Simulated scan of single mutants.
Amino acid sequence: MEDALVRRRSEMLEAEVDGELVALDVESGTCYSFNRSATRIWQLLDEPRTVGSLRDALLAEFDVDKLECERDLLEALEQMRVGGVIESSVPLPAAPTKG
């Protein structure tokens, strides 16, 4: 999981509104709205990154438990993957469940 390389899938026109990102996929005409967490993940994906490096960057920025961070990250990445805005070098694992 940590070595899965994630990258943005297509060019988007982006605007930040109140700390959240609104993006338009030029190719499909689809508009996306990212919450604050997803906005930060998107910003970190300005270059392709591994899931592990994304997690570590978020842990360094936010006061959050490692398991919670990993779970939230994987959930956000899966939503982005399903939405067609990112792709991964290998299938992303399911987010760990709350214990």
Rank of each mutant, 00 (worst) to 15 (best):
residue 70 E to T: 14
residue 38 A to N: 12
residue 82 V to E: 15
residue 61 E to A: 14
residue 97 T to M: 05
residue 94 A to M: 11
residue 10 S to F: 12
residue 8 R to V: 14
residue 92 L to P: 09
residue 31 C to M: 14
residue 24 L to A: 14
residue 9 R to L: 12
residue 70 E to I: 02
residue 3 D to A: 15
residue 32 Y to T: 10
residue 17 V to R: 14
residue 14 E to W: 02
residue 99 G to W: 02
residue 83 G to C: 06
residue 81 R to W: 05
residue 63 D to K: 06
residue 51 V to A: 09
residue 13 L to R: 14
residue 76 A to E: 10
residue 96 P to A: 09
residue 34 F to I: 03
residue 77 L to C: 05
residue 54 L to T: 00
residue 98 K to R: 15
residue 74 L to K: 04
residue 53 S to L: 03
residue 68 E to K: 14
residue 8 R to A: 11
residue 46 D to N: 12
residue 45 L to I: 07
residue 71 R to L: 00
residue 68 E to W: 05
residue 32 Y to R: 12
residue 72 D to F: 02
residue 96 P to S: 10
residue 79 Q to M: 08
residue 99 G to F: 05
residue 91 P to K: 02
residue 1 M to R: 04
residue 35 N to Q: 06
residue 48 P to M: 04
residue 48 P to I: 06
residue 54 L to R: 02
residue 59 L to P: 02
residue 3 D to P: 00
residue 60 A to R: 07
residue 23 A to C: 09
residue 37 S to Y: 12
residue 29 G to Q: 12
residue 72 D to I: 00
residue 68 E to M: 11
residue 98 K to W: 10
residue 50 T to P: 00
residue 84 G to R: 09
residue 54 L to H: 01
residue 8 R to D: 08
residue 53 S to P: 01
residue 2 E to S: 14
residue 62 F to P: 00
residue 45 L to V: 07
residue 69 C to N: 10
residue 96 P to Q: 09
residue 93 P to A: 08
residue 36 R to G: 00
residue 30 T to S: 10
residue 45 L to P: 03
residue 7 R to W: 12
residue 43 Q to M: 02
residue 25 D to T: 11
residue 94 A to G: 05
residue 73 L to R: 04
residue 50 T to I: 01
residue 77 L to Q: 09
residue 53 S to M: 06
residue 64 V to F: 03
residue 92 L to Q: 13
residue 9 R to F: 05
residue 95 A to V: 01
residue 98 K to N: 10
residue 34 F to R: 10
residue 64 V to L: 10
residue 71 R to T: 08
residue 38 A to R: 15
residue 59 L to Q: 04
residue 47 E to V: 13
residue 48 P to S: 07
residue 78 E to Y: 01
residue 80 M to Y: 10
residue 35 N to V: 01
residue 76 A to M: 08
residue 97 T to F: 00
residue 92 L to K: 13
residue 16 E to D: 10
residue 68 E to N: 06
residue 77 L to N: 04
residue 97 T to A: 11
residue 36 R to D: 04
residue 2 E to D: 14
residue 97 T to K: 13
residue 25 D to L: 08
